[in-house]
Design a protein around this nucleic acid. Structure first.
Lengths: 142, 142
DNA sequence: CCTAGTGTCCTATCACGATAGTACAGTAGT
DNA sequence: ACTACTGTACTATCGTGATAGGACACTAGG
């Protein structure tokens, strides 16, 4: 259960938390019945206000993904994996749709879009390669 | 010079205006020396507050894309086409990068991403086809 | 019982994007 | 000169995302 929060990529922090918890469940990094990190611990871990985490967890309860266990914490519901699996690609599709629509509105051709996508995919892969080659170093070259 | 403003796709309205003016220049829908629609007219056209348009135009001046002609309006600078052409793909690439990074962080595979992209591209094309088949109708089916 | 840990609720404050309305300096056309 | 435009500036207000800090009810473990 490790979250990647981006200070601002346009998505509110509480929503980023929601999305990533769902991804974690879809990817089986979080199992049914397992407790999600406590509000205060998660807040400390990702350097964010506890209220913001609480807001995210509240939304996840509304979605039926988490269930409160009084005085103990929040557990992943039995229905969660199915829901999160179903949502897995939709969460990305919705974001992707906005970007591609903008591109299309502004006469970026499908081939140009494909080229951008491929170059970004390669970029992500090479970032992975770098990280696996030197997993400990902090990245300084000098 | 026709803008597509989305109430909220995460990008502030004033920034959407900026981007689309740049795209219009890159696509030669706006020529050097030509005046951009007046603050008040643009505001009326896209149903937005004049201050918001003004903010966008101010940013475009800072970027050297527009130059004020006192009492007359804002004109496209001679340097603008080069700048906007250079930025054309970058504006999309930056947005795309955020989405693909999120997908990648959450174990969406490159092939799944490619499939999403292709299905969205086809979707955009079929929307175009619909619009060109019935370009006049307002869309009511009953 | 008591303590430390849960989630939850509440008020207050701040930044930012957006709106509303007003005002002013400059220019073009009559 | 007068009028109708231009851009620009200013204050005030609103909603939302986020922070800060305090308070409460509950539960597990000693």
């Amino acid at each position: 259960m490790q979250l990647h929060i981006e200070a601002s990529n346009g998505i509110p922090i509480y929503e980023q938390i929601c999305r990533q918890v769902k991804f974690a469940i879809a990817n089986k990094a979080l199992q049914v019945g397992e407790h999600v990190p406590s509000v205060r611990e998660m807040a400390g871990r990702i350097a964010v206000n506890p209220n913001t985490v609480s807001r995210a967890y509240r939304d996840l309860q509304t979605d039926g993904v988490l269930i409160p266990i009084r005085g103990t914490g929040l557990a992943v519901t039995p229905e969660a994996p199915a829901k999160c699996n179903a949502e897995r690609l939709d969460l990305i599709r919705d974001r992707l749709r906005i970007v591609l629509a903008e591109a299309h509105h502004n006469q970026i051709t499908p081939d140009e879009i494909r080229q951008l996508v491929e170059s970004e995919l390669h970029r992500l892969e090479s970032l992975d390669a770098d990280n696996s080659l030197k997993p400990v170093t902090t990245g300084e070259t000098a």
